[in-house]
Design a protein around this nucleic acid. Sequence first.
DNA 1: CCTATTCATTAACATAGGTTAAGAAGTTTC
DNA 2: GAAACTTCTTAACCTATGTTAATGAATAGG
Lengths: 189, 189
Amino acid sequence: MFAVLNGIHPLTDECTQELSTLLEIRTIAKRDHFVHADEIARDIGFVVKGLLRAYFTTPDGIEYNKTFFHENTFALGFASAIQQKPSIIQFQALEDTSMVVFSFLKFRALFERHRCLETLFRIVVEIEWIKKEERELRLAMNTAEERYDAFAKEYPGVEFRIPQYHVASHLGITPVQLSRIRSRRSTKG
Amino acid sequence: MFAVLNGIHPLTDECTQELSTLLEIRTIAKRDHFVHADEIARDIGFVVKGLLRAYFTTPDGIEYNKTFFHENTFALGFASAIQQKPSIIQFQALEDTSMVVFSFLKFRALFERHRCLETLFRIVVEIEWIKKEERELRLAMNTAEERYDAFAKEYPGVEFRIPQYHVASHLGITPVQLSRIRSRRSTKG
DNA sequence: CCTATTCATTAACATAGGTTAAGAAGTTTC
DNA sequence: GAAACTTCTTAACCTATGTTAATGAATAGG
C-alpha cells in the first residue's frame, strides 16, 4: 500500500510511521457492504484482494454502478466523508475482499503535522476530478459501445470477474443491450 | 460578490480587504473567450452581467457544453487551474459579459494567512463535487427529456437567452431532438 | 445427483434519438 | 431593403436502446 502512496507522492518516514498506527485489516464477504446507505463513510479502504462496486439506487429501485475498486486501489465515499453526511452511494463487495482500512478523520488530522500527506490527498482529489470530468464527457458524447471499450481499458480484466449486468449498469444500458454489443463484436470484429 | 462569498462561508474583514486588492474588472464581448484551449486557466471570474459557457471540443469538431455561468456565479477552469496545465475546456461568452476577475494563484496564496478563505474554497470544491456526481447520475440514468427539466431548473431563464443548439449540446442530444421534445410538451403537456 | 436459482442470449416489438434535408422565420450586413 | 446568414421546425428514414419474454447454460444448495 505504501508503495502505491509513494508512487503518487513521496511520504516522509515519520508520516509513514504515524499512518501505520491507524491501519486495520478488514475482510468483507461477497455481497456484504463496506459503506451502507444513509451511513457516513468513515473509512478509507485499500483493496488488497477482491473487488468492490460503488453504486447508487433510484427511488424506484434501479441501480447504477458508479465505480469499481479492484486490487491496489483506494475506496472512499468521498462526498459523504468530506461532508460528514450520510452517503447516498453504497459500496458492496463483489468478491470476498480483504482491505486495509483507516479512519478518514484520523487520516485528515495527520495533515497538520505532515504536509506531504495533505499534498498527496490534494493530488488524489485532482486525479479523481479529472477522471470524473472524462467520465462526464464520455457519458454525454459516446455511444454505449465506445463506453464499453473505455470501461474495458479503465478496469482491465474486471469485465470477466463480475456478472455482465453490473457492467451494463455501469455503462448506463440494459444487460440485453450489452449482450447485443458483445455478440456483434464476436461476429464482425 | 462578497455577499455571495459570505453566503457560502463568512470572511473576516482583513481577508475581504486583501482579496479586494486582487480584483479587476473585465468585459468580454459575445463570442470572445475567457479561457482559450491549450491555455492555463489563470483567473477566477465572477459574472456580474452576462452569460458564459464551458465547453469541450472533440477531435472531429463536435462541441459539448459542460456548464453555463450566469450572473452571480464563479467561472473557473478548475482542472486546469489546480494542475497549472493547459485547459482542454474552453470558456466563451454567449452574451456581452462583465466580470470581476482575480488570479487563482494569488487567491490561493491568501490561504496561508486567511483560514476562512481556504475553508470557503474547500466548501466550494465540495459543492461542485456533489453537483458533478448528480450530473453523472442524470446522464447515466435519465432520458433527454428528464435532463431537459433538470437543466431548466438548474439554470432558470438561461434557456431563453441562448440558441437552442447550445442547450441541446449540454443535454447530449441534437438540436433536432430537443425541438421534438419541446414541441411534444407544448402539444401534450 | 437433483433442483432451484442465477445469468446470458435471443427474438419480437416499441420508443428514443441520430442524420439529412428542406423550408420558414428572424437577424445581420452592406 | 435585399442578400446572406442564423436558427428553429418538420419530415422521412435509420439505428440504438428499452421492454418483455422464452430458452438454455452455469452454478449453488441440499
